[in-house]
Design a protein around this nucleic acid. Sequence first.
DNA 1: GATCCCCTAGTGCCCGCGCACTAGGGGATC
DNA 2: GATCCCCTAGTGCGCGGGCACTAGGGGATC
Lengths: 217, 217
Amino acid sequence: MPIRVLIADDQTLVRTGFRLILNADPGIEVISEAADGEAAVRLAQRYRPDVTLMDIRMPKLDGLRATELLAGPTVVDPLRVVVVTTYDVDENVYAALLAGACGFLLKDAGPRLLLEAVHAAAKGESMVSPSVTVRLLKHFTEDAGARTPPRPDIPLTARELDVVLAVARGRTNAEISAALRISLSTVKSHLASVQAKLEARNRTEIAIWAWRNRLLT
Amino acid sequence: MPIRVLIADDQTLVRTGFRLILNADPGIEVISEAADGEAAVRLAQRYRPDVTLMDIRMPKLDGLRATELLAGPTVVDPLRVVVVTTYDVDENVYAALLAGACGFLLKDAGPRLLLEAVHAAAKGESMVSPSVTVRLLKHFTEDAGARTPPRPDIPLTARELDVVLAVARGRTNAEISAALRISLSTVKSHLASVQAKLEARNRTEIAIWAWRNRLLT
DNA sequence: GATCCCCTAGTGCCCGCGCACTAGGGGATC
DNA sequence: GATCCCCTAGTGCGCGGGCACTAGGGGATC
């Protein structure tokens, strides 16, 4: 059984291009096309395709709103939507993912990537354009291991700082241990020395210290 | 000028498979291979390949450490490393990204994905396996979703607020009980309902909520 | 008067955390 | 080579805190 795909884009040429690429894959079948956002929502709700390719800039209803209607957090039985756009703008990525998109592709991506994205979406996985992914990972690693020295010159080691930041995010010792790939004992060791250095009585005071000193925002 | 690739994997069959796939692409040239982590680091430092494919489980030095040595945050002129592994474990993903990997691939990925990953890495972009991406996005939207509705308008009762503020100052339940002149049980009761309302998992997350919403300075 | 919420209070359970202490490998410094 | 610090890891212990549940008095609303 092939993957049933709906294409939503206001430009005929783009739709045709996508259709040709997708139909060349025997595992994929384009079942319908929409030229504006309203039609996209209507057709998607009627046919319930396995994957919907959604352009952002469309008449009547833009692709992000349409995505929210089809895959948003409040939808009971969300569809899989891959957002496709020309412009690699951070706000678009952000909005698309919050709207429930399970993929974000730039139109300059090659056919291989488009096919991968459709297959991934159909499996419940996600595919994001590499140029977007790199920023996503940056976001992630900054969040996870922002090794910025603290304002008041308390000599925390790099590892201790990792633990402090995790605590300040409300993580448990077990979670920290998994995230940093060290044992529970080691987490406790670091935490104990941090606690002594900061003269904190418990982990909450450590978290407060981190917030007070603007290690987090 | 083709993309120069180093393959690091202890299994000969895997290396051969990768080499065949990569060499089929005229834009890619496999310049060397390593069968353990130490050799990977040595060869990578000598030849400085555009992209290194790095297995995690390897003799002598595991791929994560090797990646850290080649692309870690402390390295002056980091190389591009794509981590490749059999096991889709969260800790591996975290560790790989923190070690500076600009890609994370599962070995069950198809050849298309491997090629895309190498091309992306060479361009300074990033490619992550779809099954991993889906979890990465979940993290992202959770983080973002926790930020977007900065709801100070959660209906906390006066007494609950007292307790929250005390917690946000690092007080223990016993101290709160004494300060507010109520029993320990009552403190726990209030705290339990606060916890439910804020969807917090522990008192630290309650304290974080208070600071994030500027209930304290 | 009935209903609802808030504040108060309790019991039992047990897991996570903090405390004290030890310890070895590795890198940097003297 | 000796010393120091960092990161790692472990054991044992005990308390604080989170979880589930019940419950009664009082004020406000319907």
